[in-house]
Design a protein around this nucleic acid. Structure first.
Length: 639
RNA sequence: GCCGACGUAGCUCAAUGGAAGAGCAGCUGACUUGUAAUCAGCAGGUUGCGGGUUCGAAUCCCAUCGUCGGCUCCA
């Protein structure tokens, strides 16, 4: 056997090395920045430790923190250091899992007493010691039996459970640094000293494997970076993001409020209502264009209807109930049963299809108290719902239209989103075969239109699979907004039919879909997306006049009336304050246009324009400005 | 729902077992103001709610309500 191997680098250059050389040795010879920055290596596509010997010809590249895989490895190694620190300080702590996550890492521990914030500081200190000790991180491979034996002796019950579930033929690897040993696939950084700066951020309970039937472990979240300045930058970014929080801006801009007397049930203030109404006006306009008709169904419907729809069986825990004249009623958590009743009021022909019945329906759902979150997760909300009744042959085309409609809406607001396909859940209605047909129909539409998507196994609605449109809040948390759900169940349950070309009765198919999702949630994301600085068409106050002194009030009122005639929302700040004060106030309220009027403007019949985000843009006649404003508003411009 | 933290004036926060306070906002008055905060005065509280310990509780304990973070990221 040849004792040389050929290594090919990313630039396609090749070099010969002795067999068994490690990537670390190679990068040491290369020197330069990479020598310091390399964390792991990639050989023929596989990520390995720098200390793993190379046994054959291979392509080789080095991974540093700036690579997406690099920061993951870095954070994963950081989580091991945290676990080591925890075990040093709390001998009885059993290990759960400790992966890297976006922007950081966590580790779950089973400890007799939960951690306190002070414990976090101690753990962080211990981590710094471990880093300073610069312990080499070594990989070991064991047989299944050896691994089980080892973790049984250590009393690591959770690790045992994990090993037992690994496939029979899987190589079981462990990583050791000093006295600390953990089950881990790797790769890891070569030594603990590679980690330059760590920060523990928060503490939380987390069920073992995310299942509430399992014990609750203590989870510590943290992050790490290669430089203190990068960490500081990240922390500053978090602080900045919090300023966009819709709960903060919602109060500051007087848009909505929440009250102890109504947990999860939002109150909309006049300025919030203006935005809501603008969203709905736009929605009605676009839906008319797209061939939808609007209906409205009651909020309270009788129990037997919910039994018929399957909600009684599948959704009862989330529903509110009431009694009327001794009969049981439920407050609707979804709009579908009402729409089914409307459909069944007369005969339908295939010629009407697709029949698109839209409803801005107020639904109530009993969400767990711990999940409530501002306007993003509430207990009552308005869905911009629609049920589309159609022939099975129309499904794919119609799903495509829904996707296009949602895309059109999100583009108007400048949202970026991602798409997820959710499949059959445990608690599902209907045959597996129907689910299969429905799921692959959705999948095909996405694939044929080259829309990238992630699959969420088991996350579908109880009546059908769905395509979800996900937006992010100010802290990057995901929220489902738009959705298109295929339903073969409701038509059965409600015995829906249409008369086909052949003169016979047939079963239609339904798409449930929402575009905004919930007006409340979408509104919250809009607030965060724009940081409260809404585009002109949405701004509660679009233009504010700032007269310099009393003698300019009359002129301001005259000019304001001209704008109001064109449908603008205008205010005049007639308070007895200096113009600087009025400007500051209007700026804080994020009003798009301030028009300052004093002697100079009155004389020449002008307004001095101060534009949000740009500042003073000089005086001009109101008529000229009006044209710009009308254009900006009607085009729904974003700047 | 579960784990943890938090709850003081409309808002942001101080007072850590010994007299409940500040800034902003609000109200009143003066100033008639030129591109991000004019000055002065006034008012604002059963410290979330209920119980307990104590001579004395915003502070300590129990209970309850609400809020915040997490419970999805798989060794």
């Amino acid at each position: 056997m040849n004792d040389k191997i050929i290594v090919t680098f990313p630039d396609d250059s090749k070099k010969e090395f002795p067999r068994g050389i490690t990537p670390q040795e190679i990068v040491n010879q290369m020197g330069g920045r990479l020598k310091k920055e390399a964390l792991a290596a990639r050989t023929n596509g596989e990520l390995i430790d720098l200390t793993r010997p190379l046994t054959g010809d291979t392509r080789l590249s080095f991974i540093s923190f700036d690579d997406p895989e690099g920061s993951k490895i870095y954070r994963h190694s950081s989580s091991h250091i945290m676990a080591q620190a925890v075990q040093r300080l709390f001998g009885d702590a059993k290990l759960g899992i400790g992966p890297s996550i976006e922007n950081g890492f966590y580790y779950d521990f089973d400890v007799s007493e939960s951690f306190s914030p002070e414990d976090l500081e101690k753990i962080e200190e211990e981590m710094k010691k471990i880093i300073k000790e610069n312990l080499p991180v070594e990989r070991k491979e064991l047989s299944r039996e050896e691994a089980l034996d080892l973790f049984r002796k250590k009393g690591e019950d959770y690790k045992l459970e994990l090993i037992e579930e690994l496939p029979e033929d899987e190589i079981i690897s462990l990583y050791q640094q000093g006295e600390f040993l953990d089950l881990c696939a790797g790769p890891h950084v070569p030594s603990t000293g590679k980690i330059k700066t760590v920060k523990l951020l928060s503490l939380a309970g987390a069920y073992w494997r995310g299942d509430e039937r399992n014990p609750m472990l203590q989870r510590i979240y943290g992050t790490s970076f290669t430089k203190q300045s990068l960490l500081q930058e990240y922390l500053d970014r978090l602080e900045e993001a919090k300023k966009r929080d819709h709960r903060k801006l919602g109060r500051e801009l007087d848009l909505y409020s929440m009250h102890e007397e109504a947990p999860g049930f939002p109150f909309f203030h006049p300025k919030g209502m203006i935005i809501r109404e603008e969203l709905l006006k736009f929605w009605r306009q676009e839906h008319r264009k797209a061939g939808y008709q609007e209906i409205q169904t009651p909020i309270i419907l009788e129990r037997k209807l919910w039994e018929q729809s399957g909600h009684w069986e599948h959704y009862k825990e989330n529903m509110y109930f009431t009694k009327i004249d001794d009969a049981d009623f439920a407050v609707k958590p979804m709009n579908c049963p009402g729409a089914m009743l409307v459909y069944n009021t007369r005969m339908h022909s295939y010629r009407e299809f697709p029949l698109r019945l839209a409803e801005l329906g107020l639904v109530h759902r009993h969400e767990l108290s711990g999940t409530l979150h501002g306007l993003l997760r509430v207990r009552n909300f308005t869905q911009d719902d629609a049920h589309i009744f159609m022939l099975p042959s129309q499904v794919k085309e119609e799903v495509k239209k829904v996707i296009d409609l949602i895309d059109h809406f999100y583009k108007v607001f400048g949202f970026t989103y991602h798409v997820e396909l959710s499949t059959k859940p445990e608690k599902a209605m209907g045959s597996g075969e129907l689910w299969e047909i429905a799921t692959s129909a959705l999948r095909e539409v996405l694939e044929e239109n080259e829309i990238p998507f992630k699959v969420n196994e088991g996350d579908g609605a109880f009546y059908g699979p769905k395509i979800d449109f996900i937006l992010e809040d100010c802290l990057g948390r995901n929220w489902q907004c738009g959705t298109a759900q295929l339903d073969f169940q409701m038509p059965e349950k409600f015995d829906l039919s249409y008369i086909g070309e052949d003169g016979q009765r047939h079963r239609p198919v339904i798409i449930h879909r929402v575009v905004y999702g919930a007006i409340e949630r979408f509104f919250a994301l809009l607030i965060e997306h724009f940081g409260g600085a809404f585009p002109l068409w949405l701004a509660p106050v679009q233009v504010i006049f700032l007269p310099i002194a009393d003698r300019h009030f009359e002129y301001a009122r005259k000019k304001a009336a001209q704008l109001e005639e064109q449908g603008f929302r205008v205010e005049i700040d007639e308070r007895n304050e200096k113009v600087g004060y009025k400007i500051r106030e209007a700026q804080v309220q994020k009003i798009p246009y301030m028009l300052i009027v004093g002697d100079k403007e009155m004389e020449n019949s002008l307004v001095a324009v101060r534009k949000r985000g740009e500042g003073d843009i000089g005086p001009q006649p109101l008529e000229a400005l009006m044209e710009t404003l009308i254009n900006e508003r009607d085009e729904k411009s974003i700047y």
